[in-house]
């Protein structure tokens, strides 16, 4: 089976029912995507699937063949951190950091779909668990990233 992850092709040979999470982590050693619950509840395993934030712990690998998969490892491009990642540093968001791959990917997907989210939009879109309770800083960082993204687009445009 062929998977396209962060723009690169990978050949894998596993049961079609194996969740994408375990293909990433154990077959491809891409450990940035985390296991937290395995029941699509916590969001630590979130990746972008054709641009949509998707939990991978219950997602059979057969369902993602041919789709574009972007993991936390693909968020920075050519060594350049994304605006979201920079905002995460600016606001000193991570504590233990375990949930943050999923949070960052979810934030990227949110901002792709909604460049200027309100607090309500953030509440609706970011449903991942952070046991360290970094929500306040995540919210602030999303607003900052939205601003920086807009500035970048204006500059480019």
């Amino acid at each position: 089976m062929e998977l396209i992850i962060n723009g690169k092709s990978h050949q894998i040979d596993v049961e079609s029912s194996m969740p994408l999470l375990w293909v990433l982590r154990d077959e491809l050693d891409m450990t940035g995507t985390k296991y937290g619950c395995g029941v699509a509840s916590c969001g630590t395993c979130t990746v972008m699937l054709d641009g949509v934030a998707t939990k991978t712990c219950t997602l059979p690998v057969s369902a993602v063949e041919g789709k574009e998969i972007k993991t936390i490892e693909g968020v920075a491009t050519e060594g350049q951190l994304s605006e979201v990642q920079k905002a995460w540093i600016e606001h000193q968001v991570p504590q233990c950091g375990y949930c943050q791959s999923g949070m960052i990917v979810a934030a990227e997907a949110l901002l792709d779909a909604n460049p200027a989210p309100t607090d309500e939009d953030i509440n609706g879109a970011i449903n991942n668990i952070c046991r360290c309770g970094t929500y306040q800083r995540i919210r602030a960082a999303i607003h900052t990233a939205a601003k920086w993204r807009a500035e970048k687009t204006n500059l480019a445009g």
Binding site: T31, G32, L81, I89, S101, I104
Partner: peptide, 21 residues
Amino acid sequence: VQRLDIPEKVTGEAEYGLDAR
């Protein structure tokens, strides 16, 4: 002071016990 561990916690590079390979 900015935390020294945060840069690698935003790129997925930070390794936890479960990430040992």
